[in-house]
Amino acid sequence: MPIFDQGYQAYGGERRALGRRWIPVWREEAAPYLHKRAFLLLLVLALLPWLVFGAGLSFAKTQFGDSSAMQEFVKQLPPVDESWVAKLLTNGWDNFLLVIVSVWVGSGLVARDRKERTLEVFLGRALGPMQYLWAKGAALGAYLLLFTFVPVVVLVVFHVGLTGDTAFLWQHARVLWGTLLYTLLGPGTLVVTVLALSSLSRSPRIVGLALIGIMFFGLPASAILWAITRSPMAWTFSVLAELRALGYHCLGVAPEMEIPVLHSALYFLALLGASLGILYLRFSRREVLR
């Protein structure tokens, strides 16, 4: 009996344009997380502070604003504005979630393909390194967007919905575009950095540990350096502190760590440049395949 049940069949159908070949790679990388309960729980936990503190504030003001007993309490509540959003967007909890998602989704982006030797299978197709990296980066970027920009959108929708204050949308337009800018510059740079780190190792575990080390090393190191020198340059060691400052600057609020806006911008430009440099060196001569 022949080993194959049917003969070889040729394919004469259509082929998609070269520019769209990244889509299945992106989908295969990103989609599995939406089926993991732990990941969905993480998403809920990310939204929770926004709903509780943000939407809850709006709810309290609208529902209890007329009650004389609650008026004093309601007066104490901070307004939902750029300052409040900056605090929520860049607090310790949000940063912690950012690191978890970067480690969980990001550490294996390139490293796993190197370990399983599927990287050469992908690059041996009509995919190309740029499309491959775009697909992988987009997978992580989509989730970082979900954990940073989407909660702000949810907050704005709840606030406007509960208060009926549509003027909020143009009086505090910076809440939305500032957050989008922060997401693109900050977490966006983080995506490229994670890709660069992931391209340096065959072990997603090592990449994850390196990410954790880099993110969490900076905080105590910078805090202590700042305590010694009182110079904003001390925060350069801490990616999380710089992210925080960037968030404040994008939303037009003065950051607590007194990091100047130029310093923030240059920091992320330098980090982006270094990460792109690593990716270029790794992929241009295919060193990443060795």
Partner: peptide
């Protein structure tokens, strides 16, 4: 002029750096 002295810095290092970062990270690593 510096913000803190040696012994204070040492205390901060023990709490923030050693206990809060180095020991859990290396044990994890």
């Amino acid at each position: 002029p510096v913000g803190l002295g040696g012994s204070t810095l040492y205390g901060n290092l023990v709490v923030a750096y050693y206990m809060g970062f180095l020991i859990p990270l290396c044990a994890l690593f």
